[in-house]
Computed example of a mutant assay.
Amino acid sequence: MRANKSFIFISIIMGVILQIIPMPPPMDLYRPDWLLLILLYWAMALPNRVNVGVAGIAGLILDILYGTALGVHSFALAVPVYLMSANYQRLRNYSMPQQAVMVLVLSALYHLIVYWLVYLITGIEFSWVFMWPCLASMILWPWLFWLLRKFRRNLRVT
């Protein structure tokens, strides 16, 4: 029974690994937000287990691994996860294309928050290239949702 509950932790660790794994430079522009997608799934499926606190800790780990100022990714992950967990009952009833559009919006919000916070610290200029991962996350959402739901049901994660 305990192994079933640790699947959430394992999936979040896998999201962190997929988020930082090296990719070829042309493909890196389109890297989906793996950690955000996994946190959004768990916030929608089990909002009592994965919430803003888990997103904040995962964001701190991401800040440490990326070498950014502490709290940038933590805050940027916490906002979309909060919005998902606050509206999980409504979003569960959406069709898959509607959920994918919501993931696009939440991913765009995540990237804009990261940009704004990094802009305040370093003054970097905005480029639309920052938004390509949002489209990749939207396209990947149905498959990741299906995969995580299949594991959650088979392992009886509650």
Rank of each mutant, 00 (worst) to 15 (best):
G53I: 12
G53H: 13
V54G: 14
V54F: 14
V54I: 15
V54N: 15
V54Y: 14
V54S: 14
V54M: 15
V54T: 15
A55S: 10
A55F: 08
A55T: 09
A55G: 09
A55R: 03
G56V: 13
G56Q: 14
G56K: 13
G56L: 15
G56E: 13
G56C: 15
I57W: 10
I57L: 12
I57T: 08
I57D: 06
I57Y: 10
A58G: 05
A58M: 02
A58V: 00
A58R: 05
G59F: 03
G59I: 00
L60C: 05
L60Q: 08
L60D: 01
L60E: 03
L60H: 00
I61R: 02
I61H: 01
L62W: 07
L62F: 07
L62D: 03
L62I: 07
L62M: 10
L62P: 03
D63R: 05
D63C: 00
D63P: 02
D63L: 03
D63E: 00
D63M: 05
D63N: 03
I64N: 08
I64R: 07
I64F: 11
I64G: 07
I64Q: 11
I64C: 10
L65E: 00
L65M: 04
L65Q: 06
L65T: 06
L65K: 04
Y66C: 09
Y66S: 11
Y66R: 10
Y66Q: 10
G67P: 06
G67N: 05
T68V: 08
T68D: 05
A69P: 11
A69F: 15
A69L: 15
A69E: 14
A69G: 12
L70V: 03
L70A: 04
L70D: 03
L70Y: 04
L70S: 01
G71T: 00
G71C: 04
G71M: 03
G71F: 00
G71L: 01
G71H: 04
V72I: 03
V72C: 03
V72R: 02
V72G: 00
V72A: 04
H73W: 06
H73S: 10
H73D: 09
H73N: 12
H73A: 11
H73P: 05
S74H: 03
S74R: 02
S74I: 02
S74D: 05
S74P: 05
S74A: 06
F75H: 12
F75E: 13
F75R: 10
F75Q: 11
A76K: 10
A76N: 06
L77W: 08
L77A: 08
L77D: 02
L77M: 06
L77T: 05
A78F: 12
A78M: 14
A78P: 11
A78E: 14
A78H: 11
A78Q: 12
A78N: 12
V79W: 06
V79S: 12
V79D: 08
V79Q: 11
V79E: 12
V79Y: 08
P80L: 10
P80V: 09
P80I: 08
V81E: 07
V81N: 07
V81W: 04
V81K: 07
V81D: 08
Y82L: 15
Y82M: 15
Y82V: 14
Y82D: 13
Y82G: 15
Y82K: 13
